[in-house]
Amino acid sequence: MENFAVIDLGSNSCRMTVTEIEEDGSFKRGQMTKAFVRLSEGMEASGELQELPMARTITALQGFYAVYSKLENLTLRAVATAAVRGAKNQADFLERVKQQVHGLEIQVITGNEEANYDYLGVINTLPVTNCVIMDTGGASCELVLVQNGRVQNLVSLPFGSVNLSETFLVHGTDQVAAVDLFRLSTAVQRLFNGIWWLHRGQNLPIVALGGSNRTIAKIRRKEKKVADYEDIHGFRMTVAEVDDVYANIIGRNLAQRKAIPGLSKDRADIIAAGITPIVTIMRTLDSGRVVFSENGVREGILYEHLADLRAHGRIGEVDKSAKK
């Protein structure tokens, strides 16, 4: 058995998933670990990763090391996305991680690679054929147009919940000001208008990934009193339901947002900006529904790894019943 660990260092959170892969090709998800590090915090002015977020991130990675270092037959893959990708001090940060986290080497993936991994994570675990995949992170947003089960176009846009909040919610994160919300939604709409192929996703469902988008589903499931409200993979919502959640969020101050069931207190200050893109794109494409996915970059990397193992004859055919 191989323990395949994937670390995904995002702009807002850092996550690790361990998957146990058997020789016959079957696999099951083991331990999952998450830490809110908000690595992109304060980057807007200088374009550099700041000291406190870097320190938080390294502490989180050291905690991950305490877990994966105990695993036998370990294969480790660590990737970083938008925050590290755009940082002027990227090289210094990666070297610091290597020195302070027992030689951990992190690969910085491109926006297109991130979008493609999102596609692999979705297409292997959800029954979708035609859709627009949207992954809204802390500092980037990936869009993938899927037709007949295949990628037709993809793009990575340089905005997410953290940098949108820092750029547009200039009157503070307590109460969302109407003028800030207008400028935010207008800027997002203009970026979407500049994607020439996006109109081909008209009327298609949106498959939503990323912490902010998933929060919409968690809030709705809490409202419906679903016991396992965090298990949102495959959960569907109409555009009207998404709009209701959005209106509830932007109509509250920070303390009131922290009290919303299903919304993490760590995300309350950036959630309004974080879900504005999905509300905007559903209107742009006149999408009638959104399907939520728990699987994205980390699972995409897993499926790429499984395909490589099969190609080299190291495992049998994957057991499709292991999908999640």
Rank of each mutant, 00 (worst) to 15 (best):
C141L: 04
F292E: 06
A115N: 02
A60Y: 13
H233F: 08
D92H: 03
A139F: 11
E317Q: 01
N193L: 07
I206A: 09
A208E: 10
V67I: 15
P158F: 14
N12V: 13
V207G: 03
T280D: 02
F168Y: 15
T280A: 05
K224G: 00
P261I: 12
T238W: 12
Q50P: 01
R56A: 14
M43R: 04
M16N: 04
D8R: 06
R190D: 07
R183F: 07
G47F: 05
M134L: 06
L76M: 06
G251F: 09
D228W: 07
I301F: 12
I123R: 12
D286H: 03
R150P: 04
I270T: 13
T238E: 10
G300R: 03
I106E: 05
G194E: 14
R289H: 03
K218V: 04
K224W: 08
N163K: 09
L39V: 03
E166N: 03
H171V: 06
I216F: 11
V37E: 09
L181N: 13
I216V: 15
L39K: 05
F192Y: 11
G316L: 00
T280L: 00
G172R: 12
K88D: 02
E166H: 03
I260P: 11
A55N: 14
N124K: 08
P261H: 04
